[in-house]
Structures are given as C-alpha cells and as structure tokens.
Design a protein around this nucleic acid. Structure first.
Lengths: 206, 206
DNA sequence: GTCTATAATTCGATAGAC
DNA sequence: GTCTATCGAATTATAGAC
C-alpha cells in the first residue's frame, strides 16, 4: 500500500506521509494511546509539522477513521448488488474480498470496533453503510432464503463472524494454534473456499 | 510487592468498591482512555485513596485484566472436559455459557482483545488457557471429527466467531438491525439453540 | 483510612526563527 | 514548509493533615 515515494509532488508528499503514519499508529494503538509525537516520528518529520498540516490530533484521527471505514466498504457495494450472482456466490465473493483485505490490514476491524465503542458518535456520521447493506440485492436474497423463519441478521452475524472474527482474535488464535503470520494467512485462504460451503450448510439447516 | 499483611472482610470494603469501579471503567474505555479520577469518582472515593490501595494505575489495570481473563475462562474447563457429553453437546453448552456471560458483560471480549493488541506482553502471563483448551477432551473430540482433513483451529474460529463476534460487533449490528438491547439479547438467546445445529451442519460438510 | 493540596511528568499545541 | 523551543492543560502519584 505504502509504496516508497518514487515521485514527490512537493505539495502533497509530506501531508501524505503523515497521514499514512497516522493510520498505522492509530490503528495499532487506538486514539487514546497514540501520541502525536509517535506519529511524527513514524512519518520522519517534526511534531510541529503535524499540527501545521492537520490542525489537531482529533482532526487527523477523524480523517484516518473516515478512510478506514471507506476502506472497509470499498468494493463491497458492487458485490452486494450484482444481479447475476446467487446468494452463495455473493457470500463467496464477500469472504474472498474481506480475507484479502484483512490479510494486509489485520487490525482494521478491531480498530474500527473499539473506537466506535469508545465514541459511538463517530459512527452516526458514516452510516450510509446501513442503507447500502439493507437495500442491497444481497439482503433481498438473504431474506428470500430465510423466509421469515429466522431473522436475516443472524446470517449477517454468521458471515462476518466466520470471516472477520478470526482476524479480530488473531493474536490469541495464533498463539493457541502456534501459527506464524504466513501460516495464519494460509488458513484464512483455506476459509475462502469453506465459508460459502459452511454458510450453505447453515442456511439449509433452518 | 508483597502486601496483604492485613486481612479485611471483602464484603463492602473500599478496596473491593475500587476494584469494581476500575473493572467497569477500564472495560468501557480501555486502559489509555480511562483516568484514575474517573475510577475514583465511580467508586465514590478520593483519588488519593486509589493509590493508597493499589500502587499505580497500571497495577490496578493488571489486576482487572487478570480477573477479566479468569472470568472468560471460568466454568469452561468443566464443559471442555466432561467425559459424558458429545462434541455437539459441548458446543451447545459453550454457546449457552458464553452468551449468558456476554449478555451481562457485553464488552468483555472487545476489552480483552484490544488491550492484548495494544500490549501483547500482557497475554503471555496468562496463557494457561492454551493448555486447558488443547489438552481438553473437547479438543480431542474435535480432532477426531475433523480427521485431519481440516485444521481443527478452523472450528475454534467458527464457534467463537458465531458466539462471541456478535457481541464484539454489537454497536454496529444493533444499528443495522435496529435492535434494542433487549431485542439483541433475545436474538442471542435464539442463537443458543441454533449454533450447535449450525456447527453440526458445518462439521458434516467437510 | 480518608481527605486536600500539590509536586512531577506527560502531551497537545503554538510561537517564532529560518 | 520545516525546524527548535516552550507554554499550558491534563493527569498520575505523593505529602501531609486529620
């Protein structure tokens, strides 16, 4: 993602470096635990410069959080509304999409979820996600399959539980399973194929 | 280091009040975001008194985290090693156990997971959990069922993904599903019955 | 044991030189 | 734009009276 800066357009290079450093540190340590000095050091610049580009720690954080939420939603809309794919195909695509995303951005979901808990107000700004999801073709297919016997929310929980949760709990799971990062990623790649099969089996069991 | 020269009745002692207040505030806001003043206020005592009983914010936190981890493991050992229950029965008992626990302590898992990410060193102290799990009768039954065709870790991920993840993501899920706390808890109660059925279906699909 | 007051430190933000 | 130096607010921890 962060390519070594080949060409430095003089007006945006430093700003971009700071933003990338901020994303890295905020995501790892959370808002409260990160010091603006850490971000400056990570970006290889001075503390004063951070406040020159972004007026405050909080403004920089809001920017990072907004882009994190976008990163989490980017590309999903197309999968959700594909009129030519079945429910199972969409589940397969969602699993693959998120597993590839989270292999590279492992602590993105834990970051988003813990910061939302710490400050739920941040959420309400960016809840276009709710409409995107509930009005999607995917959700209609899910409702048609569950046929009011079970709340479709259960299967949202299941998809994300199977796909995202392993990354959220990866520090624990990697110790329990004695897996290196590479081995853990390989496990997650296996899940790309298994999750749609498992979801099918679950949907048929109701 | 070695204190506790005086023994006190733990009933409504000040020490206990502080510890409960600390657990509440730390769990809600995380280590970095909580101020010792918040804990003191929540406990209805003075800030100085907190440092009188517990030497520092960090020592108090370590205590709270240790008890949180214990709370998460308490009672699980007996379920895991019950020689008279099948794998499916154990899954059913685990799901019920954790759902009841997390209905009351909703942000316990997010607290544990985010603090471990922020400071992985905290984990290594308390990883007796790993042995409890891997040497349990439950894990042997799981290995026997997957028959080396699939890493049993996948099904650990699945059980906890189906059971714990909904609580971790509850701020988001409750908004998406427009559920009150009561309605959300009712959904989780439904999952007590469904999770073992779903897990069975998944295990048969391999 | 419990309080008030304060010391000591950390951290976000700014002033001002270049 | 970028730096050094520093201010001011917030916060942990302690001293000392009762």
């Amino acid at each position: 993602m962060a390519k070594m800066e080949k060409l430095e357009t003089a007006d945006s290079s430093t700003e971009e470096k700071i933003k990338e450093a901020a994303a890295k540190v905020f995501t790892q340590k959370g808002f409260a635990a990160t010091r603006t000095r850490d971000i400056a050091e990570e970006a290889g610049i001075n503390l004063a410069l951070l406040n020159y580009y972004f007026r405050s720690k909080e403004k920089l954080f809001d920017l990072v959080m907004m882009e994190s939420l976008q990163k989490f939603m980017l590309g999903v809309r197309d999968i959700l509304n594909d009129v030519n794919s079945s429910l199972t195909e969409k589940i397969s695509q969602l699993a693959s999409h998120y597993i590839d995303l989270l292999k590279v951005n492992t602590d993105l979901p834990l970051f988003i979820l813990s910061e939302i808990r710490a400050n739920p107000a941040r959420l309400e700004a960016n809840m276009g996600a709710k409409e995107i999801l509930l009005q999607s073709n995917f959700y209609k297919q899910l409702e048609a399959t569950t046929k009011k016997k079970v709340d479709p929310i259960h299967f949202l929980m299941n998809i994300f539980g199977l796909t995202v949760f392993p990354f959220v709990a990866s520090p624990l799971l990697r110790i329990i399973g004695e897996k290196s990062k590479t081995e853990f990623d390989a496990l997650m790649d296996e899940r790309k194929k298994m999750i749609p099969i498992w979801m099918d089996a679950m949907l048929k069991s109701i």
